[in-house]
Every structure is written in structure tokens, then in C-alpha cells.
Amino acid sequence: MNKWDCRSAKIGDNLPELLIETISRTKLALYAGASGDHNPIHIDTDYTKRIGLSDVIAHGMLIMGYLGRVLTNNLNQNQILEYGVQFSSITNIGDKLACSGIVKEILNNKKNKIIKLELKVKDQNNDTKLKGYSLIKTS
């Protein structure tokens, strides 16, 4: 896989945008099984209706997993020092998500050049689902 050349990164550079296939119940069921998070709010519409939600909602951690692919698609995973997100709004069935990353800061410590990326997930209405960041080492 071709990795992004982060050694020549400049502030404001964008990582390639990652589009996620439409969120479906199947995707949530698969993630429930794979992660072990069987909370019925993500998989059982009978349950969600009982608690006043018209449908299941996505696991926040699934969306964090998708956004993490902006890192793993473009970097070697051992370059990732830190990866964090804030969950801003709920992801629903039918949402179409776009994951993006931009170089926010370049920090130099004694050993390494560290890049701070600003990460984001937006939906088809330009609503922000997740805001995140990552610290990556360049070597």
C-alpha cells in the first residue's frame, strides 16, 4: 500500500479523504459481534422503540474505528503515538460519512519530528460526528 510521505508534510496538508459506505444495520450487527459491545441500542429496533428512539444508532467506537483508517491507510501503524476523538453527534442508519485529516502542527522534540493531525468525520449534511486528533512520529 502506498503510504503518505509525512516527512515532507506541511501545515495545512490534507490526507486523502476516506468515504464510508452507507451506515446499515448489518454494519452495526457486525461491529457488535466483532467488538463485543452488544448494547441493544445498536442492534435491536424493538428495544430502541421501547426507549423512544425510532431506530438503532451506530456505536461511537465504530465511527472512531472508521476514522482510524485515515491513519492506517496512510501511515505505518507504529507511527501513531496518540489517537483521540470527541463524539459530537449520533450517527444514524443511512448516514454517509466522510473521514478527513489535516496537518495542524509540526512539533520538533530532540529525537523526532512529531506531526499533529486534526481529524474529522462529517455526514451527508456536513454535520460533524467526530472531532479527533492524532500525534504521529515521522520516523
Binding site: 426507549i51 461511537g60 467506537m61 472512531m64 501503524q77 507504529n78 501513531i80 503515538l81 496518540e82 489517537y83 483521540g84 476523538v85 470527541q86 463524539f87
Partner: peptide
Amino acid sequence: MKDVLHAGQIYKYHSL
């Protein structure tokens, strides 16, 4: 439980 939201998540990585 319905008043609780997962607001943020941070991972710090030391080894694969």
C-alpha cells in the same frame, strides 16, 4: 444510564 454519554476517547500507544 440514559443520561450517560461517551463523550471522548483517547488512546496512547507504546507498542503494537
